[in-house]
Design a binder for these strands. Structure first.
Lengths: 217, 217, 217, 217
DNA sequence: GATGAATGAGATTTCATTCAT
DNA sequence: AATGAATGAAATCTCATTCAT
């Protein structure tokens, strides 16, 4: 099968997996069901992805890919605005992305735990670390961060962001707010069900405002 | 066995579980190993905790308990300070708590995912929802939040915090920052290994500063 | 479980396996079916026998055990006869045993092939060589041969067997005739269906007669 | 592809199969490996031989063919000798053939087991029974036996063999000795490694001598 | 007819969880 | 209440065999 065709089938499988993961969660999902959803057999599934976690890795990769796309779009849309606006827009997109792509946002957070486990016992997870998707994620995961850093730097240059801001530090700080937001979102199920009477929409706005304050000169 | 004895044994088991979870993570841990560590058999283990997740619930409960203690201590230590200082102190303690109690912080975050799963399929998780620890956590989980809200309110009254602050919203926002911090901490393994060249200490300071800005009148 | 009980269950499983092997043959048999026949689950089956071949080893062991019993009985029954008669009686019993215990005789012959395979690639067959049954067979397999040798020696001493007979060589030669007989028996299915118009009964008699001629002084 | 070409390729495949069977044994062999050895793909392999057993059938056929050749040669070489000598010469050739053609001798013995399995479940083995090689073997398998019978008959006529010998019965009896010899050879691996301190050469000589005694007037 | 991909059947393993004593 | 054995569900793997192109 040529590369393109394989890609298509692979994507097909990943989509099936996403649909199953979304419905029952990664841990309760069954390879059998995923295979069936993809219209293939378990063995074929395994010939594409060496394990369930491997398959999840692929989903995580898709998540990072999608997020990266979002970041590029946001940056592009704010090309004519200053660095400050673009930076804030990025975070706004990030929040939105998470709300709309539950599975993806959860996947990205799970990625951190997987990294931890891999570090804990690299031998046990060799099938993971050898996965092409693992390598791809490694290459990709920092891109959104770098893009944000770049916009913050642009803001510093064009004076829309205060000069003593450490771009990387502030970027990471932004991530903590988003990641925390995701987890709370996870707990409450969706953006419309309030958590402790707090509307998640307001929470997002507050976070964005705090970010504005932190960056504004 | 009388109640006291059972308590002791239960605690014994929980400690064994914590040690195992800490070493290999919840998902890779085996009931067998936990039982062995606790010096009992699997069946006895099950007579104390109806399932592995149930056992994790107990750990999570301990985490919330410990956190609550920390919050009380912080509040008590800041009795003579204003609400602003007390609020910030709480968050500072919270960060510190997470750094020092890796397992507990991870557990609290995992709690959110479990809540999600329980919502997804309540029937499958009936053993969880019927667990005494689940009920206990339900009672306890909001306490730290309420304690924080109370200090913010005190700050509003004593004018150390600006009046248009929504105490619950800001409390939750604080949590997102801490939770995000925990997850990034998780990924990097420990506070001393930097993430993208960012020292996690600086990250914490930045978050606290942003909180200060958000509360200050 | 105490040793005795385990023995009972083990035997239970072996009997189920024998019944299945007898019906469909070793290669077409399914562990699932054997487990079901034994009234246990696959996993339990595997906890007793590490693999299908391992289970076959146990059957082979039973075969050698049964054969040894037969030899002892024959020898005992011929205690008061001379060595010649006893030796011939052994071979007669051997033939009879094979006719009556199809599975066992086939198993013993298969054992030779397994030995060959194990020699060819010892690593691949480690689960076999480590089997307790493998060890047991090793201990047992030579016993029937030795018993025969002993009777031939007795015949030499009592002059019923000619003195220049090499007991071991003639014993092994006897085995070749029996083993060959088994294989032809295997092919024809059972003793009553003639092979090339040759009644297997006559074939056996001829072989025994040839043995007589070879031993007689 | 014209018939000749197909023949060449077929032979090519059979040779590859023989080499693989010889190395790892029929049961452990993989169609994949055979295809690779033959320099073709699995599917092509299957277009020549409908199943693995079918392929084995082809090898078995070759074995019977080769054996038949040997028998003819032996008979031809003993044209001027009497029937007794020719008959013994045939068995001597048979033994030698087995020693030199391990795979072939094993294959012929396995043939008997396959016959058994086919009898047990004819439906499952329809691909076998429909195989051209199966038919060919059916035609061929009795030829060596008939050739032997013929020589024994010649011996009876020329008085070199005693008259009350049943040619077919004695032929089959000869086969049992050879077949048994093969199996023991199989177990010990090769003719030079002694079995129970018995040199296989001596074993062969003994068998031949017993045959002589059985035939001699 | 040849190829790479896919199927189907079954072996084997791993664990959480439950049973029988 | 404690123990060793057993269960059940699912993951994973291996191969002979078949499909689609």
């Amino acid at each position: 099968m040529d590369h393109a065709k394989r890609q298509v089938k692979e994507n097909n499988i990943i989509q099936a997996a996403e649909s199953i993961f979304e419905t029952v969660g990664f841990h309760s999902s069954k390879m059998e069901d995923i295979a069936q959803k993809a219209g293939i057999t378990k063995v074929t599934l395994y010939s594409y992805f060496q394990s369930k976690e491997n398959l999840y890795m692929a989903v995580i990769y898709k998540a990072f890919q999608a997020l990266t796309e979002i970041f590029y779009s946001s940056i592009d849309a704010n090309r004519s605005n200053n660095g400050f606006d673009s930076t804030i827009a990025i975070f706004e997109s990030f929040f939105e992305f998470c709300e709309k792509n539950f599975l993806y946002s959860e996947a990205m957070v799970d990625y951190f735990s997987m990294i931890r486990n891999i570090k804990r016992s690299p031998e046990t997870n060799s099938t993971l670390t050898e996965s092409i998707f693992f390598a791809k994620i490694q290459d990709l995961q920092n891109l959104p961060i770098k893009l944000t850093v770049k916009e913050i730097n642009r803001g510093i240059v064009d004076k829309s962001i205060k000069r003593d801001v450490d771009p990387m530090l502030h970027t990471i700080q932004g991530w903590t707010m988003v990641v925390g937001y995701i987890k709370l979102l996870t707990a409450s199920g969706n953006i419309d069900s309030p958590l402790m009477h707090v509307n998640l929409k307001n929470l997002k706005d507050l976070s964005l405002n705090m970010a504005r304050k932190a960056l504004r000169p």
